[in-house]
Amino acid sequence: MRKINLFWMLGLFLAFILASCAKPPTQEMDAAKAAVEACKTEGADIYAKDEFKKLSDDLQAALDQVTAKKYKEAKQALIKIKADADALKATIPAKKEQAKNEAIAAQQEARAALDQAKALLEKAPKGKGTKADIEAFTADLKGLEDSFPEIQAAIDNGDFFGAKDKAVAIKDKANSIAQQIQQAIEKVQKKK
């Protein structure tokens, strides 16, 4: 009987020691936090918004488990978060490249539309009667030319979405001016 009691006491003592000696998974915490931060630095909050939000939430949940002293579960979660963050980070360059390519393609389309409008204006019949119109359209196109370098500036700053938006706006405006030039040419031709 005494042996049994001793056995129980020893068991309880060991359990107490083990429980009080459990430490927060500091290393895993630091590693997961650093991995998520690296992900953000890479641009995950811009190029993979939803995935990054989930990752941040998971990190917060794991840190909450640490606060609640659920170290074992927290450790497992933190290890997974680090792996997920590393995996997400690895996908960002491709996403960035895709956004950059889309911005460059939009920039080229804007350039083409602008050049097309200019070429059309070049073809417009020149004379005293059309001089004012030609100068007016030239001014419109100059306004677009002045705006055009802003696309490249946005690309250079890594603002690929902004660059694309600007390029689309310039392309649309150039097409609209080209249409007006065409109408003016037709008007002059009809007069003749």
Binding site: A136, A139, D140, K142, L144
Partner: peptide
């Protein structure tokens, strides 16, 4: 601008502003 000959500098700025408005709409 339609009524004056001095419209170049004005039209340049109007076009620039119109592009920015289109961007704002997007």
């Amino acid at each position: 601008c339609l009524s004056i000959n001095e419209s170049q500098r004005i039209r340049q700025r109007i076009t620039g502003a119109e592009v920015l408005i289109a961007v704002a709409q997007q």
